[in-house]
Amino acid sequence: MRIVRSGQLKIIFILTGVNILIMAALTYLSPTFMTYGNITAVMTRMSELGMLAIAETIVLIGGGFDISIGAVMALSGAVLGTLHVMGVPFYLSIIIALAAGIAVGLLNAVLVVNLRLTPFIVTLATMAIVRSVVYALLKGNVLTELPEAFLNLYYVYVFKLPLLFVILVATAVIMAIMLKKTILGRRIFAIGGNEKTAYVSGVYVKRIRYFVYCLSGFICALAGLLFTVRIRAVIPDAGLNAPLEVITAVLIGGTTIYGGKGSILGSLLGILAMYLLLNGFSLLGLNPFWEVIILGVILIVVIGQEGIIKSFRAPFVRTRA
């Protein structure tokens, strides 16, 4: 039986171990892995999915669900690119792009909170809607006409770390502090842990939900900007597979779909493992899709561990049919 919430710590220890193990193995197997160039490349690549994972973690902890994350990421890039082409001042374009993300979050919140619809299906719908807006804005085209200064953020390093990664880490730290140390974070955990208890304990549940979805929209929009910098273009299919990838990593990191439980550190360790495996397989000349298989197995084993242990015992104990 879980006594202290050690489940959380245990998962983080295991995931840290898994990551170290992967790194050790790759260092041994591939001479290019432990080079400054390769490591910073992994860091840069994981930045936008890492951001999405932060957003998803916060929503899941609050007892929600958001699969519109990938579409919102694409939307902010598309808005930015379209406005820039139209000649809107660039800083204003960025503000509007971020605002667009918040707007989608607001829409999700209205549907979930006021109409009391299931978050999974609501965000499935808004995902379709947002994606179609993205396609319509870009007319299906890739847009590369962006200010050089903005794209060159890719080459900016802070203390020898790529700026995109630093932004990810900074966001993660801020959000982790928000979740763990502030009154707001505690209330997010509370509504995810038990919405009714939170309500009778005086928490304004609806307001918190609004905040959570808008925050998710904002972080995803920010992820869209990072993605645009990284690939130096705006593409309509950005983040098409992101929701399921991100949710897999987040669940592996110990966050539950029932709410009230989870950590940003765990989610980022999940994302890190994903990119290390991806990087390792391509360095070793193996099929990178091994990564997907391994993640799938880890997901089922991690979440199903209690059930797996039970079913091993099953032949000896009779249970309900």
């Binding site: 897999t248 091994w290 993640l295 799938g296 979440i303 199903g304 059930g307 797996i308 079913s311």
Partner: peptide, 21 residues
């Protein structure tokens, strides 16, 4: 058998099946 929501199991097997393919 595992008492894990179908959503999560099939998310996992989705990855596995697609990966194997």
């Amino acid at each position: 058998r595992l008492a894990v929501p179908a959503l999560i199991i099939t998310l996992g097997t989705m990855n596995i099946y697609r990966g194997i393919t």
